[in-house]
């Protein structure tokens, strides 16, 4: 007896759940073999719900021990490794060769490990003790900025997605990500990886759909603290909208993710610097300053 194949419904990822878009809309993506897959066409309200989920998750994620965040990011790499075959198949289905799909996946796994390592180290490297003229112990340390919206690169669809998410969550932020429009399958599968990696729901939210529709809401929402843009079309609009509540805007459109992704300075782009003046005994007499 022949059996019916169980096919996967590609859905979006909000607050640790996999809902369909609230709009009920979808758009077709044609695979190399001619199969047409229906992908959720995310809407303004999906974006809104995702921001709410990200905001709710922020306190818990940002207050976790940095070392624990590190463990969780490493766990993502482990889960990716375990699903290698599936990712390679999905990348090949949209047109990649086996060699390039394998290369992209392995770079993605390595990227997770790279940022897993940074979680509990970047503040040691970038934080500072500052010389001041008064009797204060003065130090600066990085803190996550909050909710970050990311418009991930169109390609490489998996490596670009992973590379734009990792520095953001490694630093304790939560994010809402728009996946590649023409190759969104790996993004949905990556959401499944996140969901089984102890990443709390809402820390990463992934929406599929069209940049033209969503860029406005990703950049104008007043409860979003930073926007990362990895494409070419709408940077000026994003900057204008970002000015409403002085969002940080990062333009990552010209990154070659194979070459430029292992970079701790990416992490700094969604960090605020907090400086503390801690009163100490008067040491002016000793002519020394911290």
């Amino acid at each position: 007896m022949s059996r019916l194949e169980v096919q996967k419904t590609y859905k979006i990822y909000i607050g640790g759940k996999f809902p369909r878009t609230e709009s009920g809309r979808f758009y077709p993506v044609k695979l190399k073999d001619g199969t047409i897959t229906n992908i959720c066409l995310g809407s303004r309200k999906d974006a809104r719900n995702a921001v709410v989920a990200a905001r709710n998750a922020f306190e818990g994620w940002s207050s976790r021990a940095a070392f624990n965040r590190s463990q969780i990011l490493y766990r993502i790499a482990e889960m990716l490794e375990g699903r290698k075959a599936q990712f390679i198949e999905e990348l090949m289905a949209v047109g990649d060769s086996k060699a390039s799909a394998t290369k992209e996946l392995e770079a993605s796994i390595d990227r997770c490990v790279y940022f897993a390592g940074w979680c509990d180290k970047y503040t040691q490297l970038f934080g500072s003790i500052n010389p001041v003229a008064s009797s204060h112990f003065n130090f600066s340390v990085q803190e996550p900025t909050g909710v970050v919206t990311i418009i991930a690169p169109e390609s490489p669809s998996l490596l670009g997605l992973v590379s734009s998410i990792m520095p953001v969550i490694a630093g304790g932020n939560t994010c809402v990500v728009l996946a590649s429009e023409n190759s969104p399958h790996v993004a949905v599968t990556f959401a499944e990886v996140l969901n089984s990696s102890d990443v709390p729901g809402g820390v990463v939210n992934i929406i599929t759909g069209k940049e033209d529709e969503l860029v406005e809401h990703f950049s104008s929402h007043m409860d979003v603290n930073a926007t990362i843009y990895c494409r070419n079309k709408h940077l000026n609009l994003i900057k204008e909208n970002a000015s409403l509540n002085v969002k940080r805007v990062s333009d990552w459109s010209d990154k070659d993710w194979y070459r430029d992704g292992d970079d701790p300075y990416l992490l700094l782009e969604t960090q605020e610097v907090k400086t503390t003046w801690h009163p100490i005994e008067n040491i002016a007499g000793a002519k020394s300053g911290y």
């Binding site: 809104r48 921001v51 905001r55 809401h217 104008s220 929402h221 007043m222 409860d223 979003v224 909208n241 409403l244 509540n245």
Partner: peptide, 8 residues
């Protein structure tokens, strides 16, 4: 015409 945040 845009979503708000509690900060404001």
């Amino acid at each position: 015409g845009r979503y708000q945040g509690l900060d404001y």
